[in-house]
């Protein structure tokens, strides 16, 4: 069993990472990663929704008939996100001012529907939630890394406004990496997101190729059932 969980964790964070392997959720990704803080906020919000949707979908999986599963999942997700949206607006208002525009985007975030369809609908409740957590963390990781790179190169700061998101204690996170920096404007704009994402993808691929070359290729029949989900 613990092996299963280890596999889920590895899948979510690295091997089957939402952004770096599945290439999903690029729209919110490019929109919010102008700063690391925004990325972190979006990532955490998405993680929360992923866990909750994993829980609900796994719980209801025997009830949901295959014919209506997609609308049912969408409904579950939409309701969850709307409630999260309202709650953040009401009780985490400063964060809402930063992320407000992007929270509704989570509804159309294909990762959530993708995990509901490919994992939660076939799993028990606990693994489904754990999968949601790990996929969410993987997504958060990607967003923060992307946001950090864009923020440092684009505006010379790191975790600007982190106190707004996480509270005053986290003001120490806010750093000015390069003082008196002019800023490479393009990197904060969406094209910069594409460029940095592409470079990160290249880096991951190159790392994996190198590691595989080091381990030595095992020939094989490992392709059984290895279809990627491409929603």
């Amino acid at each position: 069993m613990s092996d299963d969980y280890r596999r889920i964790a590895l899948d979510g964070i690295w091997a089957n990472n939402v952004v770096f392997s599945q290439m999903l959720a690029l729209c919110p990704l490019l929109a919010v990663t102008g700063t690391a803080t925004n990325g972190l906020g979006m990532g955490l919000a998405t993680t929360a929704v992923l866990i909750a949707s994993g829980f609900l979908v796994a719980l209801l999986r025997r009830l949901i008939e295959p014919e209506i599963r997609i609308p049912a999942f969408v409904l579950v997700i939409a309701i969850l996100v709307t409630i999260v949206d309202l709650s953040i607006n009401a009780w985490l208002h400063d964060l809402y001012k930063v992320l407000g525009l992007f929270i509704p985007l989570i509804v159309t975030n294909c990762v959530i529907l993708g995990r509901a369809e490919s994992f939660a609908s076939k799993a028990r409740v606990l693994p489904a939630m754990f999968d949601g957590l790990m996929m969410g963390l993987g997504f958060t990781l990607a967003l923060v890394v992307l946001g950090a790179i864009r923020e440092i190169l684009g505006s010379g700061t790191l975790f600007a406004n982190a106190s707004l998101l996480l509270g005053e204690h986290f003001r120490i996170l806010e750093t000015t990496v390069i003082p008196d920096y002019k800023g490479v404007l393009l990197l904060i704009l969406p094209p910069g997101g594409f460029i940095v994402l592409a470079l990160l993808l290249a880096a991951k691929r190159s790392f994996e190729l190198r590691r595989r070359a080091a381990v030595g290729t095992r020939g094989g029949d490992r392709d059984v059932g290895g279809k990627e989900i491409t929603i």
Binding site: L75, V76, T82, I83, L86, N89, A90
Partner: peptide
């Protein structure tokens, strides 16, 4: 089945909306 889902969802949303309406206006 789908109708039931929709109904339960709508009820949940209504509750959520009711609970956050006041605080949001305040903010």
């Amino acid at each position: 089945l789908l109708g039931a889902f929709a109904l339960v969802g709508a009820a949940l949303l209504a509750t959520g909306h009711g609970a956050t309406e006041g605080p949001i206006a305040e903010r």
